[in-house]
């Protein structure tokens, strides 16, 4: 297979001489398309990192919201209320900017020799040493930094929704179960870790499954943040290519977007299956409809 591909690349040296299948094979393996395929990796990578991070933020938010400590409780409430009340798109544009400028301001005051005012007229100006990333940095550092900022936005936004789901699930655990833990000498931490947390999952799972689907569907927002994701490349590659391009073709965007449709459908359909399985497994032996079903 590798050898075949290699041959194919060689024969792609002069696209204008190609026809039919060979043209397509070369077209679909040109440099831009490899970047397109890579961008699927970007999306999957974002999902793989954003989900656990959001869960982490979710736990932090839920625990803060449920905390006995007054200050902490308000922080949790404000976090959840703010994120849930503000449109996602606004937040996605706001958070990376906030983090980016925040970091640059801090660096400006700690790294720059002459700390002039940051706001000069309408411009946000920090010295070269404070730029994030440094203008001398490699291009991959720039894209990684952009990706990290986007990731932070996803984690914060989805963390707030997860916090609400987890908070609700923690509250759904019957008090009798926790009272029994106390009656058998467990302290607050033991009763939380041994009883409340494991019982919480079954109530949280449907909500978290929903969030995961929404997270998958929200990945095109990367495009909004200037990251070259699959939507960017589908538009870029699908658009009409005149004869000055190596592979001229008419407007094929509809096919590219159809490919994205298929990709997203497979992703959501597949994860639905996984979550259903998880639900069944967690429900074994439980006095719920799915639990009884599983026991039969």
């Amino acid at each position: 297979m590798r050898g075949f591909l290699f041959c194919m690349f060689e024969s792609c040296a002069d696209p204008s001489s190609l026809t039919g299948l060979a043209w397509f094979a070369c077209y679909l393996t040109n440099g831009k398309h490899l970047l397109f395929y890579q961008s699927f990796g970007t999306v999957l990578g974002l999902l793989a990192l954003a989900a656990p991070l959001a869960l982490l933020f979710g736990f932090a938010g839920a625990l803060a919201k449920r905390s006995q400590i007054p200050g902490l409780r308000q922080i949790g409430q404000v976090y959840v209320a703010m994120v849930r009340g503000i449109p996602d798109v606004v937040f996605f544009l706001f958070v990376p900017l906030l983090i980016d400028q925040g970091i640059e301001v801090v660096r400006h005051y700690s790294l720059c020799e002459s700390t002039g005012p940051i706001y000069q007229g309408n411009d946000f100006v920090v010295c070269d040493a404070a730029k994030m990333p440094l203008s001398s940095a490699e291009p991959w550092v720039h894209s990684l930094y952009g990706f990290a900022l986007a990731l932070a936005a996803y984690a914060i936004v989805f963390g707030a929704f997860a916090a609400n789901t987890l908070d609700g699930a923690l509250s759904a655990v019957p008090t009798a179960q926790l009272e029994t833990a106390r009656a058998y000498g467990m302290n607050a931490r033991q009763s939380f870790v041994r009883i409340q947390l494991p019982q919480m999952w079954i109530y949280a799972l449907p909500g978290l499954a929903n969030l995961w689907q929404i997270l998958i569907k929200a990945t095109p927002l990367l495009f909004l943040l200037g990251i070259e994701d699959i939507v960017y490349w589908a538009r870029e590659l699908g658009g009409t290519k005149g004869s000055r391009f190596a592979y001229p073709h008419p407007d094929w965007r509809i096919y590219y977007f159809a490919a994205l449709l298929v990709f997203y459908m497979i992703m959501t359909w597949g994860s639905e299956k996984v979550f259903n399985r998880l639900q069944v497994r967690m429900s074994v032996g439980q006095a719920t409809l799915s639990g009884k079903g599983a026991a039969l």
């Binding site: 009798a176 179960q177 833990a181 009656a183 000498g185 467990m186 033991q190 041994r194 019982q199 439980q286």
Partner: peptide, 28 residues
């Protein structure tokens, strides 16, 4: 002082055996 409740209150996510060994292991 071990308490036995009207509604049993066995921990629903644990098997019967796990219910019995839970507090002896975790607490004691």
């Amino acid at each position: 002082l071990s308490m036995v409740f009207q509604q049993f209150n066995l921990w629903s996510h644990l098997s019967v055996l796990e219910n019995v060994i839970e507090a002896p292991i975790t607490v004691q």
